[in-house]
């Protein structure tokens, strides 16, 4: 009898297990017997992976930026700018052309949440003097030329601030100088008041190279997350970071 009972028990628990198993696993395949694409943000942004990495960690190409951990508001602004053609890079403009705001918001949130390790810091290929010039501009600015310190907006550890100010960590010198160049020449713009265009307008080509060399050699801080909104006051108004 105990023997039979335990058999019955085994049978019952197996049946229950099967029931749980089939309930848990049959739900997504109710309509379809075939495999389904994973219903996850990571699967939806696979199109971004060849250039930016599956977690937005960046790739070996120095012109494709790291996206991971940048504030979602900043990433969303860039996605909108690429979709609407304000920021021009045909492969990005093409991919995003028919994405509604909500789809772009989900992409931005996915990459903002990722925390893959920062790459090894780059070894500067410029002279000590150039690096020192970069450090001065990045940490103190040049008040006589109307240039604020990068750190006054992007944070002393360059992690950026929610929701709209990007971190500058994990970017290669080539990308930084290309973007600063684009701001200077007006091919990259943002919502008015376009603070980066104002700042970059005061930079010389030497300044840009020095800033790019210094920023790309910064070590990873303990916490690479962006500062919370309003953690510090900005030196001037910025359309990307409304108060």
């Amino acid at each position: 009898m105990p023997h039979r009972f335990s058999l019955l028990g085994l049978f019952a628990s197996t049946a229950l297990g099967l029931l749980v198993f089939t309930t848990a696993f049959s739900k997504p395949t109710l309509a379809q017997t075939q495999d389904q694409a994973p219903d996850t943000p990571a699967a939806r942004v696979l199109a971004c992976a060849p250039c930016h990495g599956a977690q937005g960690q960046g790739t070996s190409d120095p012109y494709f930026p790291r996206l991971a951990g940048k504030p979602a508001g900043y990433l969303f602004n860039q996605l909108i700018a690429f979709r609407d053609g304000r920021r021009r890079y045909p492969p990005m403009n093409y991919l995003l052309e028919f994405q509604p705001d909500d789809s772009l918001k989900h992409m931005a949130e996915y990459f903002a949440e990722q925390r893959p390790p920062l790459p090894e810091q780059g070894v500067p290929t410029v002279s000590k003097e150039v690096l020192a010039h970069g450090e001065t501009l990045v940490t103190q600015g040049a008040a006589d030329r109307g240039i604020p310190a990068c750190s006054s907006c992007h944070g002393v550890h360059f992690t950026g601030m929610d929701p709209g100010i990007p971190g500058l960590l994990g970017l290669r010198a080539k990308y930084i100088s290309a973007q600063l160049g684009a701001w200077r020449y007006g091919t990259r713009t943002a919502n008015a008041p376009d603070c980066m265009q104002l700042v970059a307008g005061h930079l010389t080509e030497e300044d840009v190279n020095a800033i790019a060399a210094y920023l790309s050699s910064r070590p990873a801080p303990q916490d690479p997350s962006p500062a919370k909104k309003g953690s510090y006051a900005l030196p001037f108004a910025c359309g990307s970071q409304p108060n």
């Binding site: 694409a37 699967a43 939806r44 942004v45 696979l46 199109a47 971004c48 992976a49 060849p50 250039c51 190409d61 492969p91 093409y94 991919l95 995003l96 028919f98 994405q99 509604p100 909500d102 789809s103 989900h106």
Partner: peptide, 22 residues
């Protein structure tokens, strides 16, 4: 070039295909 299907009421969060040009 890869590509994203359009985001629509019926498919608001599309899955995209990666570009392989590089």
């Amino acid at each position: 070039n890869g590509g994203y299907p359009p985001g629509t009421f019926g498919n608001p969060l599309p899955h995209g295909m990666p570009p392989f040009a590089q």
